[in-house]
Design a protein around this nucleic acid. Structure first.
Ligand SMILES: [Mn+2]
Ligand SMILES: [Mn+2]
Ligand SMILES: [Mn+2]
Ligand SMILES: [Mn+2]
Lengths: 222, 222
DNA sequence: TCCTATATTTTGAGTTGTCAAAATGAAACT
DNA sequence: AGTTTCATTTTGACAACTCAAAATATAGGA
C-alpha cells in the first residue's frame, strides 16, 4: 500500500520535528498534533496505526519516533517538496515566499518520473530556495549544523545559508532586504534589552531585526 | 466548500460523456460508474449528493446531466488537466503518451496562481498536446465537430487536428509514425472487409491502421 | 506523600467514499 | 399480458480520517 497524503504529512512532520529536537528524542504527541493541525486524540489514533504498519515506534505517554522505513519515506516526501519548490522558483519564476503552499499539495502527487525530470532540469540541486537540503532519491540527506545570526561572532563576515521558517510574510520581508541564501552579512551589534540584532549586508545595507528572526537565519563563517 | 478530487473526477467524467453523447442526452449511471471506475451503486449515491448540492440534475432510472454550475466546475478541471499536459510536454519535454496519468492527479492540486503561470509561460495555448481544446478561465470552450480518418473523403489532403484517445501505447504508436496534430494526411483506401484504412502522411510514409483507430484521429480538410 | 496542572488517551460519534449483494424498476420478447 | 433480462437503486457494511469531551496518566510543587 502506498501511503496516503495524510500519512505522508504525518511522517514529514515527524521527520522535521526529530531534526530540530535532536535524533534520539521522542516527539511528543501534542507537538505532532499541532504540526499536522489535528486534535490530539486524532494524532494518537493515527500514530497507533502507523506503529502497527511499522513506520514509527510509539511509546504511549512519551512520544513517537520514525522507524528506519518511516524515515526513508519521510525523506522522499521532503525530497519531492523541496525539488518542487526549487522548480517553482527556478523554472516557473515564482517567489520563494509563495511556493511553500503549492509544494505542500504537489509533494503528494508528483510521480517519480516527473520528480526526476525536475531534478534533471534543475541540474540536481542540493538545496531548495530556502537553503533546505534536498534528500537524494535513496532518502539520504546531508545535514549540517549551522550557526544563526543570533549565535555567530560579532563583526565577522558570514554567509547566509538557510532560512529556518516558511512564513510567507517573513520571506517577503527577507526578499525585500536581499537576505537570501548566498548573501554576505556581518552582525554589528546585539542588544538583548531591545531584543534586537543589527546587521550589515554584503551590498552595504543596514537592517535591524528581532532576535527571534535572527535565530531563523542560518549562516556559515566565510 | 471546494470540491474534493473525487467530486471533480465525477464532474469531469460527466462533462466528457455529455460531449460525446450530445448535449441534451442524459448520461446513464452505468456509463458514469464505468468512467469513474466505481460500482454502480456508488455512482448513484454520489450523484444524489451532487444533485443535492446543485451540481447535477438527476433523473432516477434515466441518468444525470450537469447543471450550469456543474458544467463550469467541470470545464475548469478540464482546463487544469489540459494546461498541465501541455506544460509537461512543452516545458518539461515529456512524451505526449505519458502525460495523461500525471495530469489526472495534478489537475486536482494545482492552484489558480500556478495554473495561470503555466498558461502564461505557454503563451495561452488553445489546445493541449492531443489537440483537445483548453477551456478559458471562465469555463468557456470552443468545441468544433471534426471528421475522422474513417469518415473523410478519400484521396483528399487533410490535416490532423486531434486524437480522441488517451491510451499510452496507442499514442506511442502514433508518435512513432508521426501521426500528431498538424500532420498532413491523405486516406488512400478503406477496406471494410479487412477493417482497415490506408494512409499516406505528409512526409510520404504509408501506414495501414484499423477502422477503430482511424475513427480516433480527427481531421480537417486543408 | 498528596495534590494539582498539563499532556495524553479513550470513547462515542460524524463525514466521505467505497463495495457486494439483494431488491426493484424498466424494457423487451414471447 | 406475462415473463425474462438488464440496468439501477437500496441496504448494510466497512475503511480512513476526523472531532469533542470524558477519563486517565505523568510530573512537579506543596
Ligand atoms: Mn503536504
Ligand atoms: Mn523550502
Ligand atoms: Mn483526476
Ligand atoms: Mn489531453
Amino acid at each position: 500500500m502506498l501511503p496516503s497524503s495524510t500519512v505522508e504529512n504525518y511522517l514529514k512532520a515527524l521527520y522535521q520535528a526529530e531534526a530540530t529536537l535532536g535524533e534520539k528524542a521522542l516527539v511528543p504527541m501534542g507537538q505532532l498534533a499541532t504540526a499536522v493541525r489535528v486534535a490530539p486524540g486524532t494524532a494518537t489514533t493515527m500514530i497507533k496505526a502507523l506503529a502497527e504498519s511499522g513506520l514509527v515506534k510509539y511509546e504511549p505517554y512519551l512520544g513517537v519516533r520514525l522507524s528506519p522505513a518511516g524515515t526513508k519515506l519521510a525523506a522522499l516526501v521532503l525530497r519531492r517538496h523541496r525539488l518542487v519548490e526549487q522548480f517553482l522558483v527556478e523554472v516557473m519564476g515564482m517567489s520563494w515566499a509563495e511556493v511553500h503552499e503549492d509544494a505542500e499539495q504537489l509533494e503528494h502527487v508528483v510521480s517519480d518520473r516527473l520528480i526526476e525530470r525536475m531534478d534533471a532540469m534543475l541540474g540536481h540541486p542540493s538545496v531548495d530556495p530556502h537553503g533546505d537540503p534536498i534528500p537524494t532519491a535513496d532518502g539520504d540527506v546531508e545535514s549540517h549544523q549551522y550557526d544563526s545570526l543570533l549565535t555567530c561572532r560579532l563583526r565577522t563576515p558570514v554567509k547566509m545559508i538557510r532560512v529556518a521558517d516558511q512564513d510567507a510574510s517573513f520571506l517577503r520581508f527577507l526578499e525585500e532586504h536581499n537576505l537570501k541564501p548566498g548573501q554576505s552579512i556581518e552582525v554589528e551589534l546585539r542588544d538583548p534589552a531591545a531584543d534586537s540584532v543589527q546587521l550589515r549586508t554584503g551590498d552595504d545595507h543596514r537592517i535591524t531585526i528581532g532576535t527571534k528572526a535572527a535565530s531563523k537565519l542560518l549562516i556559515e563563517v566565510v
